[in-house]
Amino acid sequence: MIRYALVCDQDHEFEGWFGASGDFDDQKARGLLSCPVCESAEVRKQIMAPAVAGTKRNTPDLPPKARAVMMEALSKVRRHVEENFDNVGDAFAAEARAIHEGRSEDRGIYGQATPAEVKALVADGVPVAPLPPDPPKKTEVN
Rank of each mutant, 00 (worst) to 15 (best):
E140Q: 03
I109L: 00
V88T: 05
A94Q: 07
V69H: 14
R103A: 13
R79E: 00
P63H: 04
D11S: 15
F18D: 06
V7E: 14
C35W: 06
C38H: 05
R30E: 15
F24S: 11
S104F: 01
P132L: 01
L33A: 00
V122F: 07
E42R: 13
P60C: 03
L131I: 05
E95H: 00
S21M: 13
A94T: 01
Q27N: 11
V118I: 05
P135W: 02
K28T: 11
K119Y: 07
V128L: 09
V81F: 04
A123C: 03
V37G: 13
S21D: 15
K45L: 04
G108Q: 11
A96W: 03
D25F: 02
P130H: 11
A98K: 02
V128M: 09
I2K: 15
N142R: 15
P64Q: 09
H12D: 13
A20V: 10
D26A: 01
G111Q: 04
G89T: 04
R3T: 15
V52Q: 10
A113P: 01
E140K: 11
L6A: 02
P60Y: 08
W17R: 14
R67L: 12
V118T: 10
T114W: 02
A68Y: 03
E117S: 06
V37R: 15
P136T: 06
A66G: 08
N87C: 09
P133N: 01
A93W: 03
V7P: 14
A98V: 11
T55A: 02
P132R: 04
R107F: 09
A93I: 02
F14W: 12
V128G: 13
P63Q: 00
H100R: 08
P63A: 08
T59D: 12
C38V: 01
T114E: 06
E42G: 05
K138P: 00
C35L: 02
I47F: 14
D86E: 14
E15R: 11
D25C: 08
W17C: 06
E82W: 04
L33Y: 00
P127W: 14
Q46F: 02
K76F: 03
D61L: 09
P115T: 09
D23F: 04
D90Q: 11
S75N: 07
F24L: 04
H100F: 07
F24A: 02
F85G: 04
L62E: 06
V77L: 10
I109A: 08
G108P: 04
A116K: 12
A96L: 08
P133D: 02
D61Y: 05
Q46A: 05
A29Y: 11
D25V: 00
R107T: 09
P50D: 11
E140Y: 00
A96Q: 08
V81Q: 01
D134N: 00
E83M: 09
P133M: 11
D9T: 12
G54K: 03
I2M: 13
K45H: 11
Q46R: 15
V69N: 12
R107Y: 03
D134L: 09
T114V: 06
E82S: 05
K119S: 10
A41E: 01
C8Y: 07
H12Q: 14
A120R: 01
I47G: 10
G125Y: 04
N87I: 14
E82H: 06
V128C: 10
V122H: 03
L74W: 10
T139G: 00
G108T: 09
T59K: 03
P64A: 02
P63K: 04
V7Y: 00
C8R: 01
N84F: 01
Q27K: 12
A120N: 03
P127D: 10
P136R: 07
V141F: 05
R44P: 06
R57I: 11
